[in-house]
């Protein structure tokens, strides 16, 4: 619910800045590691956006997979089951390169 509130606040602020009449769509990038349940977030967004510029807007969630980079051998790989182990050299010093995103990318207005 707190996330839905923040998304609406960010989208409305951006729309007001451009003097838009209403928001039609909100595109949000969500990393796999965030553990967001899309149906729940979309439901909260729908309820909480009533009586705002974002009322009736479509919330589109673009999920990003959890990707790691081995700091030992520089291999990039998809992290499966949250196992931070390099498939090539079995190194455990892994940098997360994608999967922690949580941002409003853009909005569609008229």
């Amino acid at each position: 619910m707190a996330l839905a509130r923040n998304i609406i606040d960010i989208a409305v602020a951006a729309a007001e800045k451009e003097k838009a009449d209403r928001i039609i769509g909100v595109n949000v990038v969500v990393g796999e590691l965030r553990g967001i349940i899309p149906a729940q977030l979309i439901f909260c967004f729908g309820l909480m956006s009533e009586n705002t510029l974002a009322a009736g807007a479509h919330l589109n969630l673009e999920t990003r997979p959890l990707l790691g980079r081995c700091r030992t051998c520089q291999e990039d790989f998809a992290v499966k089951d949250y196992m931070y182990v390099c498939p090539r050299c079995e190194g455990q010093d892994i940098e997360i390169v994608s999967g922690t995103e949580l941002r409003v990318r853009d909005i569609e207005v008229e």
């Binding site: 960010i10 451009e18 838009a20 941002r103 409003v104």
Partner: peptide
Amino acid sequence: MKINVMTDILEAN
């Protein structure tokens, strides 16, 4: 019209 936002949702926090 599309407006680029690129704002982290937890930025205010």
